[in-house]
Design a protein around this nucleic acid. Sequence first.
DNA 1: GTAACTGCAAATGCTTTGCATAATC
DNA 2: GATTATGCAAAGCATTTGCAGTTAC
Lengths: 139, 139
Amino acid sequence: MMEFEQILRSRGYRLTNQRRVIVRELEGERHLSAEEIYDRVKEEHPELGLSTVYRTLDLLHELGIVRKEDFGEGYSRYELATERMHHHARCRRCGKVIEFNEELMEYLTLQVERETGFVTDSYEITLHGLCRECAAASS
Amino acid sequence: MMEFEQILRSRGYRLTNQRRVIVRELEGERHLSAEEIYDRVKEEHPELGLSTVYRTLDLLHELGIVRKEDFGEGYSRYELATERMHHHARCRRCGKVIEFNEELMEYLTLQVERETGFVTDSYEITLHGLCRECAAASS
DNA sequence: GTAACTGCAAATGCTTTGCATAATC
DNA sequence: GATTATGCAAAGCATTTGCAGTTAC
């Protein structure tokens, strides 16, 4: 991933080791929380601070390099915006998150842009309801 | 809205004044945060505590009576599940939330249920990108 | 009467911030 | 060398919890 370095430079941000390391971690795994990134990186780079992780994720999110996700856990998860878009179904009883992909939606983002001027670079669908087990248990 | 009283009773929960008042507030306005509900209700019912608001919203959410929404503000918003489903486009630069409706999607929930057993009672689409103004400013 | 519910205050956990130091350009 | 970025510790918020008192059934 060279692209993110160019984006940073072109906006006048500095290319630090911490930023490189955090992006590398995100390249390795999806859906990471700030704390998880911090823990993983700390082994090799004990000098990294948790606040730097938050500040970096904030910056990367604003630059459109990472997506910020909310699984209803009380904290955020992050993944590279280059990852394939995907969607979640979250059980309101047990909290389980089921992931699924689907292919339409392209037309929707076009329509929204036409109507509101909003330029979409990624999207997320969340279904609220009951997973198989909880649905079975409640009937 | 009588329905929620029946749901509570049928599950063995008690029908308290606090629960009634909180639901009434949700009937009056959409997208309310716990704190906003607390502030609105406090004028007429100073005895209501904020933790009761949170506990009630949690219960109503688990029962499927209210939807829990995340606009990326760092806290949750709530609305009655009977409200028309809608979707958001959130600007990653300025945070502005643009709301829009659309009508397809029915087929998607059916397909998900077929594949995973997940029973959807509501859904939410979030687009990530730039609003008209921020998109203009960054080009 | 008893079990569920509430209010209050304290605790928790994620995230942000102030400031002195260090690193990038 | 100037400015941006970092680390640390402390502060900030939303949310949760423990517990004694209250209320619904």
